[in-house]
Simulated scan of single mutants.
Amino acid sequence: MPRKALPRTQRADIYEEITNKIISQLEDGRLPWVQPWARNGNSSVAMPLNASTGRTYSGINILLLWGAAIERGFAGQSWLTFRQALSLGGNVRKGERGTTVVYADKFVPQSEKDRALQSGDEPSAIPFLKRFTVFNADQCEGLPEHIAPQAPPVPEGLIDPTVHAIISATGIDFRIGGDRAFYVPRHDYVQVPPPQAYFDTIDWHRTALHELGHATGHPSRLDRDLSGSFGCRKYAFEELIAEMTAAFTCAALGIEPTVRHADYIGSWLEVLREDKRAIVRAASQASKAADWILAFRPALEADAAGDQLEAQAIAA
């Protein structure tokens, strides 16, 4: 059965969508053809490829997939369709958003075939793009080991043992990899780059505890409003909470990152200037979040901290 060509307006829309996406990346200062590698200490991946067929993508799809991986912090450049993930024994995680890629083809309309038949000329084909959706291996689960994304191992000694123990004890899905730090409320997981990606590895702890602070707001934990989108007041307020949570938790654990928390909070001055009570409310929420995290400290350390506070109280 011959493939039906897309209407001219729909064909034009795909070109326009792709162009607008590239323009948006350029306006954000991101060049989608400059960073084709994973910036997570494992730079072996360069070209995006289909993990099922082993074929590399070409043309505009390279830019689209590089851009998606950079924007969303994927650890690698292996991609699959929904059905390909199933055929390999895995699946795309529920709620994951795919990336649109395109397939270039040509179509000869019947009118052109009729004209060519009458004139004896070769029929002219009309080029068109067909869109389909792929998912990064990071967005899948249950894939074979050779396809599943593998984060580079963290060298011993880079993560404070107490922080490592706390993260594990919380039960929060905490992933190390990629080149961005973020928390995804919808899927309830944290992702941060590996410690070796930081100029000062001590700063990894502030970042990890910042994102863990966001995770405390999940409905199953402290149930804060995490619905704010980037740039809005709700988002800024939640960032204040997470940053102070990291500051309070680092202080309680005796960790001194080189990043100054006050400098980071300064970028949210607009919120503070609009609402004189905002910093008080944010600090209160941050204290609750820090207490929630610190409750998972190993028992021996928590007992030692309690003994120290008791000794200080007696001495006073």
Rank of each mutant, 00 (worst) to 15 (best):
R11I: 02
A12G: 12
Y15Q: 08
Q25P: 00
L26T: 07
W33D: 11
A38R: 12
R39I: 00
R39H: 09
A46N: 08
P48K: 06
A51K: 10
A51Y: 06
S52P: 02
I60K: 09
R83T: 10
S87V: 06
N91V: 03
N91H: 09
V92Y: 01
R93K: 13
R93E: 13
K94R: 06
G95V: 07
T99S: 09
K106L: 09
V108M: 13
K113R: 09
Q118D: 04
P123E: 10
S124V: 12
S124Y: 04
A125R: 02
F128V: 00
F132M: 00
F135W: 00
A137W: 03
E141G: 11
G142H: 05
P144I: 09
E145R: 08
H146P: 15
E156H: 10
G157K: 12
I172V: 14
I172P: 15
F174T: 02
R175L: 07
R180N: 08
R180V: 02
Y183L: 00
R186L: 08
V190P: 06
L209K: 03
H210L: 02
D223H: 13
G228C: 01
S229M: 13
S229H: 13
R233L: 14
K234D: 13
Y235R: 02
E239A: 04
A252N: 15
G254V: 06
I265V: 15
V271C: 10
R277A: 15
A282V: 04
A290C: 01
L294R: 03
F296M: 13
R297A: 03
A299D: 12
L300A: 14
A302T: 12
A304E: 14
A315M: 06
